[in-house]
Design a protein around this nucleic acid. Structure first.
Length: 588
RNA sequence: GCACCUGUAGCUCAGGGGAUAGAGCGGUGGAUUCCGGUUCCACAAGCGGGGGUUCGAAUCCCUCCAGGUGCGCCA
């Protein structure tokens, strides 16, 4: 469906053209003075300059031309040259009925379907997820869902940190503890065992131990570096062991991401990119892009227009080992080969901005990424505590994601159980859903690029601009619908009617903006726009609901119309929270 | 030192050339006992400071101030 603003703009533009002005002045928008009108057009003021004519005279002419237009209840020309527009109620009702009969509530899929890869995980294997992984998961998942909703093909890639010295450290420590394992026997030619020789808990304990041990014992670190080389060389035992580590880790990661309602299409890691490195490096050498500087192999990526120093992209360290940028570049090679994306989006901490500038430039320079493919870095800000400093546990450490989630779930359960009697099982399930809405909405309602304050007390409140408040609104709507159908009624036969009240019209107006909002959120990768829309919609509904006694309305057609409006509101709200990555329970 | 980002009400955040800058929380004073706890009204209070561009600036430009972050072999 055409967006309602497009329809309005179209009519106003026609009026401008009809009166001899450029139709470009017809661009209209939602009014910023709701007390005066619903929509406005400021084109007359801009036109005044071009045509050397008083703006209000132009506005008067346009008003004149729009007087009998079916779309508008009224068009007024005001003071300097504003055009104040109020929409025709029947037109609005028709528009909403159109939305209602559309599976997508009036929001068309994008005209050009794109293939997009989103990189939004970055967990390290053998290390538990912690709060530092929360934002990328929440934001990335939401952007993925928004883009999918718009009809694009999207691959979410967890892109695990499963390469480099950390892996070598783990293996070195394993060898110390369990030297008898066949993985370490270079003469071993048989099958390696199917079962991993360690548990997840062991694994999580081994890495930090090995890491700190290596800092104080150079010879141990030497071993770890050697082990790293073995892994890189693909020595069978080490390769097999890495696979075991991955298997155990991925299983756990899936569980934890699952609790966040986050999922990935691709479970790739840095190790998957390694096979692409040799040929890539060879080519950039051959093409003359890579050269040795200060002992390292680098590609210059600075440009004349830079206002600051952009260091070269380091491909190989002086000892020949590859690093972060190399892996990311090789990953790009792999992604181009496997998915042919139109766009690759990184949802990563904004402190890594520089790194991605280097990688992107390098990728274009050496020809991995053609100009037709868009590379985008969406850097998000830090999650701070209420003191405004990075979020830490009371002891000053990094909090495990599992701990954070279970704490919040528990808190939410108590809150729910306090207010009414629920079955333990249902209560726990509901608490989990509400808690997730609290965390996700708390994060997503801020602009991703800014730092934000993680204030649990505020996020979990049932009042104000919070996830639980939105869920509550939806739950109440469900409750009304249940009552309605229990009375033996069915709203199918009815249509949404022209608004009977100001609050109903306001609700209808907000609903009609759904498609424009969604399209915009998609273009800007901006979940927070979905959030503010949701909140506006919930408020508009609550206002309407407060003033309108739906259940005692005697006129069946009017009541049916209300119910239809309520259903549409609920469906849109549910669509919105779905793209944000959470869902509403039936009761709470 | 250089560069980038941020600075909007007491607090947390929207708004990114147009009319009187919006919410939520908190505060004060009222109305409401209503389809589930959800609502409304009023009051107090704000675009970090200073210049400039424009008919019009929270929004664009310059400058200063404050905070955060980043600046070749970590990821």
């Amino acid at each position: 469906m055409d967006k309602i603003l497009s329809l309005i703009t179209e009519e106003v533009s026609k009026a401008f053209a009809q009166k001899g002005y450029s139709e470009n002045f017809g661009k209209s928008s939602r009014s910023n003075r709701p007390d005066l009108c619903e929509y406005q057009c400021n084109g007359a003021m801009a036109a005044a300059k071009v045509y050397h004519k008083a703006p209000f005279l132009i506005a008067d002419e346009i008003k004149e031309a729009l007087n009998d237009n079916k779309l508008f209840e009224s068009v007024e020309s005001v003071k300097p040259g504003f055009l104040n527009i109020i929409l025709n109620k029947q037109f609005l009702a028709d528009y909403l009925n159109g939305m209602d009969s559309d599976q997508r509530y009036g929001c068309d899929k994008a005209k050009k379907k794109k293939t997009i890869v989103i990189d939004y995980g970055g967990p390290n294997v053998a290390k538990p997820l912690h709060v530092g992984h929360l934002r990328t998961a929440i934001i990335g998942e939401s952007i993925k869902r928004i883009q999918k909703f718009m009809g694009h093909e999207v691959f979410g890639d967890v892109h695990m940190g499963d390469w480099g010295l950390p892996m070598g450290l783990i293996m070195t420590e394993l060898k110390v503890r369990k030297p008898q394992l066949s993985y370490f026997d270079s003469g071993y030619c048989g099958e390696y065992p199917k079962e991993a020789p360690f548990t997840l808990t062991e694994l999580e304990e081994i890495y930090p131990y090995a890491s700190s041990y290596a800092k104080e014992h150079p010879e141990y670190k030497e071993d770890a570096m050697q082990a790293t080389v073995y892994i890189q060389q693909g020595i069978p035992g080490y390769k097999a062991l890495l696979e075991q580590i991955l298997k155990i880790s991925v299983e756990d990661l899936k569980k934890n991401y699952g609790n966040l309602n986050v999922s990935f299409e691709l479970w790739k890691g840095e190790s998957d990119a390694q096979p692409f490195i040799p040929a890539m490096v060879e080519k950039m050498k051959k093409d003359g892009f890579a050269h040795v500087s200060e002992g390292a192999l680098v590609v210059d990526v600075k440009e004349d227009t830079d206002t600051k120093e952009i260091p070269p992209c380091i491909i190989e360290k002086s000892d020949g080992a590859s690093l972060y940028a190399t892996t990311d570049l090789a990953t790009l090679v792999q992604r181009m080969q496997d998915y042919h994306p139109d766009e690759i989006l990184y949802v990563v901490d904004k402190r890594q901005d520089m790194h991605f500038v280097q990688v992107f430039r390098c990728a274009r320079k050496i020809g991995i990424i053609p100009d037709t493919v868009k590379l985008e870095f969406l850097g998000f800000g830090t999650m701070n505590g209420k003191d405004g400093k990075p979020f830490k546990t009371r002891e000053g450490g990094v909090m495990r994601l599992e701990t954070l989630l279970s704490d919040i779930n528990e808190q939410m359960y108590e809150k729910i159980a306090e207010n009414h009697t629920v079955e333990e099982e249902e209560g726990r399930k509901t608490a989990k859903m509400v808690a997730l809405s609290a965390i996700k909405y708390g994060d997503l309602s801020n602009q991703a690029s800014k730092d934000y304050v993680f204030d649990l007390e505020r996020f979990t409140s049932f009042e104000g601009n919070t996830g639980p408040y939105l869920l509550y609104t939806i739950v109440r709507m469900k409750s009304i619908l249940t009552k309605y159908s229990k009375a033996g009624k069915n709203a199918e036969q009815y249509r949404i009617l022209p608004a009977h009240s100001e609050s109903e019209k306001e609700l209808m107006t907000v609903i009609s903006g759904f498609n424009a909002m969604m399209e915009n959120a998609s273009l800007e990768n901006a979940p927070h726009k979905v959030c503010s829309y949701l909140y506006e919609l919930a408020n508009a509904f609550n206002h309407f609901y407060h003033e309108t006694k739906i259940m005692i309305e005697e006129n069946q057609e009017i009541q049916g119309g209300y119910i239809k409006l309520l259903i549409l509101t609920k469906n849109i709200m549910e669509t919105c929270i779905d793209v944000l990555g959470f869902e509403a329970p039936d009761r709470m």
